[in-house]
Amino acid sequence: MADTSLSTLLPADAIVTGIAAEDWRAAIRAAGELLVAGGAATSDYIGQMQAAVDEYGPYIVIAPGLALAHARPSEAVLHTGMSWAGLARPVAFGHPQNDPVELVIGLAAVDHDGHSGALSRLARMLGDPERLRELKKMREPRAIHEAITEYERGE
Protein backbone atom coordinates (compact mmCIF):
# COMPACT_ATOMS: atom_id res chain seq x y z
CA MET A 1 0.00 0.00 0.00
CA ALA A 2 1.38 3.35 -1.01
CA ASP A 3 1.65 5.59 2.02
CA THR A 4 1.84 9.13 0.69
CA SER A 5 2.57 11.81 3.25
CA LEU A 6 -0.11 14.19 4.43
CA SER A 7 2.05 17.18 3.49
CA THR A 8 2.22 15.85 -0.11
CA LEU A 9 -1.51 15.10 -0.38
CA LEU A 10 -2.31 18.51 1.11
CA PRO A 11 0.09 20.99 -0.55
CA ALA A 12 0.25 24.65 0.51
CA ASP A 13 -1.52 25.60 -2.76
CA ALA A 14 -4.57 23.60 -1.66
CA ILE A 15 -4.83 25.57 1.61
CA VAL A 16 -6.92 28.76 1.63
CA THR A 17 -8.28 30.65 4.66
CA GLY A 18 -10.76 33.50 5.08
CA ILE A 19 -13.19 32.04 2.51
CA ALA A 20 -16.59 33.72 2.37
CA ALA A 21 -19.25 30.98 2.18
CA GLU A 22 -22.92 31.70 2.82
CA ASP A 23 -23.99 28.10 3.49
CA TRP A 24 -22.74 24.49 3.62
CA ARG A 25 -23.06 23.99 -0.13
CA ALA A 26 -20.82 26.99 -0.77
CA ALA A 27 -18.36 25.77 1.88
CA ILE A 28 -18.13 22.34 0.19
CA ARG A 29 -17.83 24.04 -3.20
CA ALA A 30 -14.84 26.04 -1.89
CA ALA A 31 -13.07 22.88 -0.69
CA GLY A 32 -13.98 21.16 -3.99
CA GLU A 33 -12.68 24.00 -6.15
CA LEU A 34 -9.32 23.67 -4.40
CA LEU A 35 -9.26 19.94 -5.27
CA VAL A 36 -10.09 20.83 -8.89
CA ALA A 37 -7.43 23.59 -9.01
CA GLY A 38 -4.83 21.11 -7.74
CA GLY A 39 -5.78 18.57 -10.39
CA ALA A 40 -7.11 15.96 -7.92
CA ALA A 41 -10.65 15.99 -9.33
CA THR A 42 -12.88 17.37 -12.08
CA SER A 43 -15.66 19.84 -11.26
CA ASP A 44 -18.19 16.95 -11.26
CA TYR A 45 -16.70 15.87 -7.94
CA ILE A 46 -17.97 19.05 -6.23
CA GLY A 47 -21.60 18.07 -6.91
CA GLN A 48 -20.87 14.51 -5.77
CA MET A 49 -19.57 15.80 -2.43
CA GLN A 50 -22.70 17.94 -1.97
CA ALA A 51 -24.93 15.00 -2.98
CA ALA A 52 -23.27 12.83 -0.30
CA VAL A 53 -24.53 15.23 2.38
CA ASP A 54 -28.01 15.27 0.77
CA GLU A 55 -28.01 11.47 0.84
CA TYR A 56 -26.36 10.60 4.17
CA GLY A 57 -26.83 13.76 6.23
CA PRO A 58 -24.31 16.08 7.83
CA TYR A 59 -22.27 13.34 9.52
CA ILE A 60 -19.22 14.55 7.55
CA VAL A 61 -19.00 17.19 10.30
CA ILE A 62 -16.72 14.83 12.17
CA ALA A 63 -15.78 17.08 15.08
CA PRO A 64 -16.83 20.48 16.43
CA GLY A 65 -16.20 23.05 13.69
CA LEU A 66 -14.65 20.55 11.27
CA ALA A 67 -16.16 18.94 8.15
CA LEU A 68 -14.50 16.27 5.99
CA ALA A 69 -16.09 16.83 2.57
CA HIS A 70 -15.76 13.80 0.31
CA ALA A 71 -17.60 11.46 -2.05
CA ARG A 72 -16.95 7.92 -3.26
CA PRO A 73 -14.06 7.17 -5.61
CA SER A 74 -15.42 7.91 -9.12
CA GLU A 75 -14.39 8.94 -12.62
CA ALA A 76 -14.39 12.52 -11.34
CA VAL A 77 -11.37 11.73 -9.15
CA LEU A 78 -8.08 12.13 -11.05
CA HIS A 79 -5.69 11.44 -8.19
CA THR A 80 -5.87 11.24 -4.42
CA GLY A 81 -5.61 14.64 -2.81
CA MET A 82 -6.86 16.88 -0.03
CA SER A 83 -7.72 20.55 0.42
CA TRP A 84 -8.13 22.91 3.36
CA ALA A 85 -10.87 25.56 3.19
CA GLY A 86 -10.86 27.84 6.24
CA LEU A 87 -14.09 29.86 6.40
CA ALA A 88 -14.28 33.58 7.22
CA ARG A 89 -17.53 32.97 9.13
CA PRO A 90 -18.77 29.64 10.52
CA VAL A 91 -21.68 28.02 8.62
CA ALA A 92 -24.29 25.50 9.79
CA PHE A 93 -24.32 22.01 8.24
CA GLY A 94 -27.26 20.84 10.34
CA HIS A 95 -25.17 18.63 12.64
CA PRO A 96 -26.78 18.28 16.08
CA GLN A 97 -23.52 18.51 18.07
CA ASN A 98 -20.68 19.74 15.87
CA ASP A 99 -22.10 22.83 14.14
CA PRO A 100 -21.10 25.44 13.11
CA VAL A 101 -18.26 24.57 10.75
CA GLU A 102 -15.17 26.76 10.46
CA LEU A 103 -12.88 24.42 8.52
CA VAL A 104 -13.70 22.12 5.60
CA ILE A 105 -11.13 19.46 4.66
CA GLY A 106 -11.79 18.23 1.10
CA LEU A 107 -10.83 14.66 0.20
CA ALA A 108 -10.72 13.04 -3.23
CA ALA A 109 -9.57 9.42 -3.25
CA VAL A 110 -9.00 6.98 -6.11
CA ASP A 111 -9.43 3.97 -3.84
CA HIS A 112 -10.13 3.04 -0.24
CA ASP A 113 -6.54 2.51 0.89
CA GLY A 114 -3.96 4.81 -0.73
CA HIS A 115 -4.71 7.75 1.57
CA SER A 116 -5.54 5.91 4.78
CA GLY A 117 -2.12 6.48 6.38
CA ALA A 118 -2.21 10.22 5.66
CA LEU A 119 -5.83 10.53 6.77
CA SER A 120 -5.06 8.63 9.98
CA ARG A 121 -2.21 11.04 10.70
CA LEU A 122 -4.59 13.93 10.05
CA ALA A 123 -7.02 12.34 12.52
CA ARG A 124 -4.35 12.04 15.18
CA MET A 125 -3.17 15.59 14.51
CA LEU A 126 -6.64 17.18 14.60
CA GLY A 127 -7.78 14.82 17.37
CA ASP A 128 -5.88 17.02 19.81
CA PRO A 129 -8.44 19.79 20.54
CA GLU A 130 -5.72 22.28 21.49
CA ARG A 131 -3.88 21.76 18.19
CA LEU A 132 -7.12 21.90 16.19
CA ARG A 133 -7.96 25.24 17.80
CA GLU A 134 -4.52 26.63 16.97
CA LEU A 135 -4.65 25.44 13.36
CA LYS A 136 -8.13 26.88 12.84
CA LYS A 137 -6.80 30.26 13.98
CA MET A 138 -3.86 30.24 11.52
CA ARG A 139 -4.37 32.35 8.38
CA GLU A 140 -1.20 31.85 6.38
CA PRO A 141 -1.33 28.73 4.11
CA ARG A 142 2.45 28.22 4.24
CA ALA A 143 2.41 28.35 8.03
CA ILE A 144 -0.41 25.78 8.14
CA HIS A 145 1.44 23.54 5.69
CA GLU A 146 4.61 23.94 7.72
CA ALA A 147 2.75 22.96 10.91
CA ILE A 148 1.43 19.81 9.17
CA THR A 149 4.91 18.93 7.88
CA GLU A 150 6.40 19.49 11.33
CA TYR A 151 3.77 17.27 12.93
CA GLU A 152 4.42 14.48 10.44
CA ARG A 153 8.15 14.71 10.95
CA GLY A 154 7.71 14.38 14.69
CA GLU A 155 5.29 11.44 14.59
Binding site: A52, Y56, Y59, I60, I62, L68, H70, A71, R72, P73, L107, A109, H112, H115, S116, L119, S120, L122, A123
Partner: peptide, 8 residues
Protein backbone atom coordinates in the same frame (compact mmCIF):
# COMPACT_ATOMS: atom_id res chain seq x y z
CA UNK B 1 -18.78 6.03 1.63
CA UNK B 2 -16.13 4.04 3.46
CA UNK B 3 -13.21 6.23 2.45
CA UNK B 4 -13.19 9.27 4.72
CA UNK B 5 -15.01 9.48 7.98
CA UNK B 6 -14.79 5.78 8.76
CA UNK B 7 -11.04 5.78 8.03
CA UNK B 8 -10.63 8.49 10.67
Amino acid sequence: MGIGTSVL
